[in-house]
Design a protein around this nucleic acid. Sequence first.
DNA 1: CGCTCAATTGCATAGAAGTTGCAATAGCTG
DNA 2: CAGCTATTGCAACTTCTATGCAATTGAGCG
Lengths: 160, 160
Amino acid sequence: MKDVEVKHTVAEFEEVLRGKGLRRTIPRMMILSILVESSTHLSASRLHHLVTAAQPTISISTVYRNVTAMTEHGLLHGVEYAGQTRFGIAAAPHHHVLCERCGVLADVAVEDLAQTATNLMARTGFEISPSGQVLRGRCRQCRDDRRPAVACRAPSRPVA
Amino acid sequence: MKDVEVKHTVAEFEEVLRGKGLRRTIPRMMILSILVESSTHLSASRLHHLVTAAQPTISISTVYRNVTAMTEHGLLHGVEYAGQTRFGIAAAPHHHVLCERCGVLADVAVEDLAQTATNLMARTGFEISPSGQVLRGRCRQCRDDRRPAVACRAPSRPVA
DNA sequence: CGCTCAATTGCATAGAAGTTGCAATAGCTG
DNA sequence: CAGCTATTGCAACTTCTATGCAATTGAGCG
């Protein structure tokens, strides 16, 4: 698998933010650096938990407003699963594979879907997004579990 | 595009239900026939709306319990988008393309992702589900709208 | 056909995820 | 440092989904 974990720095994002009229605030920077450091996708509540560890007064709605804004501005992207959205850095375009049993998320290089995207575009008329796709399946650990996947809510172990 | 709309009859499902110890109840049959007839994917509230048109006393929780049960038994599958799940007949295995601007959902033949699934399996160790995938993009109507997609909620026109 | 028993339903209640109005605060820019 | 706008905290709220419980119903059986 090609290396899709191109590490971006928080400093890099500050520039982008300024260019978009988004201010460099404490909560915003904390969310960004948490996501950059961990290089994973985290839910709003998980982010809030981590953020408040250092700055206890930051509210959950601030987290929501920030991830929403940064997503709209293309800095982050969200992956919906089991009734909640996890957010991750979108700077390095990539797709995902998601274990629909345990909720684990892994990154995949965009090239791995390029041909499919072209085909689907031709067949459906849809312009397929060149990044941020989520393909579902079973991770190595869950592969042998034959219980069918639940569509609505609640994976078998808590989502990050 | 290959024809993925293999029409299944409600009668066909009754057998499956019996085999699984699921009773042939009014709400269950109505939900199934609505989904078979319309051959689309519908949200719980939309289903409830349609069901109550004929049987006004059927409650939304009954709808939820039914789509959940039938999903767990493999008769239906759910597609999450914009904070809600739409359910459709799973009998004819297929994938989907979803317009992330307007929420429109279209079916795609499983073959269109077969090669990709194989590749991803080799690269990630994930066993990719052979049906029920959702690829995101823009439908023909929304293709020219440059507003970025919103990750959290609320597509620009109401979801079915 | 009526009986029995588990599956299912309606209702009301609960809960999680996400949104929003408003007044106060804090980044930028000059 | 002054001023303007973006942002924040708080609290209230909406939407989607889940669940406990008592009443009802479907399916097989005699």
